[in-house]
Design a protein around this nucleic acid. Structure first.
Length: 578
RNA sequence: UCCGGUGUCGUUCAAUGGUAGGACAAGGGACUUUGAAUCCCUGAAUCGUGGUUCGAAUCCUCGCACCGGAACCA
């Protein structure tokens, strides 16, 4: 690569292209194309919520624009199908992108802004003999288009006079016809091996109310026509899209060549994101919502940006993930572990620590006076002492995690067990003296003694203990509901079909994980957590990251979502020894 | 049977005719008042075939596999 391929970024430093698209862009800028301008766009259709696959595209497009001080990235809503679209989605999409950390200033546009201009472009095409009104039925048109193996045949209306086409198209616009009665088609080549070039429809009649233009129009442009021309109108230089549009590129270019546009954007395709144990298609996510497998588009199990945000994912983690997965042209399914790594990486650095007990087991310290309270200092963050400390109330009755006690300890278990000494984090060393069970034999209480000399957690004789447990004071703890989330699907690729070609086709719905949500009541948390800001993520030590739910948590009925667990080395040991 | 695209560690991205490298995952170890974090170490790949070349993941041949394409959806 030559130095010319490097583009200065906003802050003036040189950037070396990190993927093939950045390389193309750097080459074009270096070659002086588009007068050295760089303009991208993110073009969602407002018919659903954004998901993490869109985040990849957003990061790519906005990131590309950031390569030049003068680079821009427009937000353009591709709203050419009034049937599916709604302002609700426009609002949500803008909010999600802003949350992700990108801004587009006054460069928010809609394809519907260009309806009049697009109409005039269509008229130009007709005048030039490059488009015609076809008056056959949808079925007839489809039939004559042929298929992969069979060429298409010309429509009997293909040679209509310019005047007749102009007249018909004007009457289509004025509302004289029913839906489907006529369609405007580009006149290209019915023999083309590329189906997209076999006289594609460019305007159809739709007597439907549009979320922005209302009833002003009853004809709407098709994607191929509207998209590329909208790009050109906005002076986009690089039109980045996903792989399935590769076959459309000749058509994208054809419109731009036929019409009097001042710029010719370059369409570049990349592989959309695939992520393990989930689905990333608006349609399928819509199904999950509609069929009540989740509580909504922002259900914390959803891979939507709204869902991830509610779950406690940080925008930083998602952006880091997007740069780590890279950009290429081959289909792939990214390991969720990579997303989770990016998440933990950011949360670990960012989140204060706290203690919470999910499945409480009562623990009584026999040699601790009843009614007495001691306070111990706990640090907010082990790597950033400057974040300060908090006081932890400690009493005779505590709760510890049920999973931290084992009556008959397995090999390598170094938490609490009969006769064992462990540390209560920040508090003291305790020794298990007795186990109390109910009639059914379930352990309901642990009785211990503590070593008052070990206040703070270390004994003066500096004897070592292997295990350190989290705990809360029974008297001071607040109760909460905690929701534990797991992957939505049990199959890494829910879309995959069985190897056996004779097997009946499966739906992604067949792989829904019935245990993706577990709700725990009466969890015990340190009291400060009651006043935690909703949506803010904290680490419950030894358990994971949790945030107070932004929708359901109430001051007298706390609800926390588990964002993600901590890595769990014991789980691996336990699994291996089993 | 047509057109387009893609094949590199388990996963993903890189290597642009010159030592196949990184990240995640996995395994091992150090440290540890979170079995977390951090640090160190290890194993692990060029779809096949034939060719060009001093030298091929890269160029060419012939295959194979996978993905996408036949909405008046985007």
């Amino acid at each position: 690569m030559s130095d010319a391929d490097k583009t200065p970024s906003t802050d003036g430093t040189e950037q070396t292209p990190k993927n093939f698209i950045e390389e193309f862009v750097a080459e074009d800028v270096a070659a002086g194309k588009n007068d050295g301008r760089l303009a991208t766009r993110f073009p969602p259709e407002p018919n659903g919520y954004l998901h993490i696959g869109h985040a990849k595209s957003i990061c790519l497009n906005f990131g590309l624009a950031d390569r030049l001080p003068s680079g821009t990235c427009n937000l353009r809503f591709d709203d050419t199908n009034p049937a599916a679209e709604d302002t609700e989605y426009v609002t949500a999409i803008a909010e999600d992108i802003r949350w992700l950390g990108f801004e587009w200033g006054d460069r928010q546009f809609f394809a519907s802004d260009y309806f009049e201009q697009l109409y005039q472009f269509a008229v130009t095409l007709i005048r030039d003999g490059k488009a015609y009104v076809d008056s056959r039925s949808l079925d007839e048109i489809r039939e004559s288009r042929g298929n992969f193996y069979k060429k298409g045949s010309d429509s009997p209306f293909r040679e209509r006079s310019v005047d007749e086409n102009i007249d018909l198209f004007a009457r289509m616009r004025s509302g004289e016809f029913e839906d489907g009665q006529h369609v405007l088609r580009a006149k290209i080549d019915m023999q083309s091996p590329n189906l997209n070039l076999r006289d594609p429809p460019i305007y159809r009649i739709r007597h439907a109310e549009h979320h922005r233009t209302g009833k002003e129009w009853c004809i709407y442009p098709m994607y191929d026509f509207a998209h590329g021309l909208s790009d050109a109108i906005e002076g986009i230089t690089h039109s980045v899209c996903t792989l399935e549009f590769q076959d459309h590129r000749p058509l994208y270019d054809w419109f731009l060549e036929q019409l009097p546009v001042t710029s010719h954007p370059r369409q570049i395709e990349f592989a959309r994101l695939g992520l393990g144990y989930t689905v990333l298609s608006k349609r399928k996510l819509q199904d999950l919502v509609t069929r009540n497998h989740v509580s909504g588009w922002d259900d914390p199990r959803m891979p939507t940006l709204a869902g991830l945000r509610r779950r406690g994912y940080s925008a930083t983690a998602i952006r880091n993930f997007c740069t780590r997965i890279g950009v290429a042209k081959r289909d792939s399914i990214v390991d969720v572990a990579l997303l989770e790594h990016a998440l933990r990486d950011d949360l670990n650095a960012d989140c204060d620590r706290a203690m919470g007990v999910l499945r409480p087991l009562k623990l009584v310290i026999e040699n601790f006076p009843e009614g007495q309270v001691e306070y111990f200092d706990a640090i907010q963050h082990p790597e950033y002492p400057e974040r300060g400390q908090r006081k932890l109330a400690f009493g005779r009755e505590l709760y510890i995690e049920r999973d931290d006690f084992m009556e008959e300890p397995k090999k390598k278990w170094f938490r609490l067990a009969p006769g064992r000494e462990v540390r209560l984090r920040y508090a003291a060393l305790i020794t298990c003296k007795e186990v109390i069970k109910d009639d059914s034999g379930e352990v309901i209480e642990i009785r211990c003694t503590w070593d008052p000399e070990s206040r703070g957690g270390n004994a003066p004789d500096s004897r070592r203990v292997k295990g350190t447990l989290h705990w809360v004071s029974a008297e001071h703890a607040v109760s909460a509901t905690v929701r534990l989330y797991d992957r939505l699907f049990t199959a890494e690729n829910p879309l995959a079909q069985k190897e056996d070609p004779d097997a009946p086709p499966t739906s992604f719905m067949d792989h829904i994980n019935p245990d993706s949500l577990e709700v725990l009541e009466n969890c015990k948390l340190e009291p400060d957590l009651a006043s935690l800001e909703a949506g803010k993520v904290v680490q419950f030590e030894r358990l994971g990251y949790f945030c107070k739910d932004t929708e359901d948590s109430k001051p007298d009925a706390l609800v926390f979502n588990r964002t993600i667990t901590l890595r769990d080395a014991w789980a691996k040991v336990a699994k291996k020894s089993r």
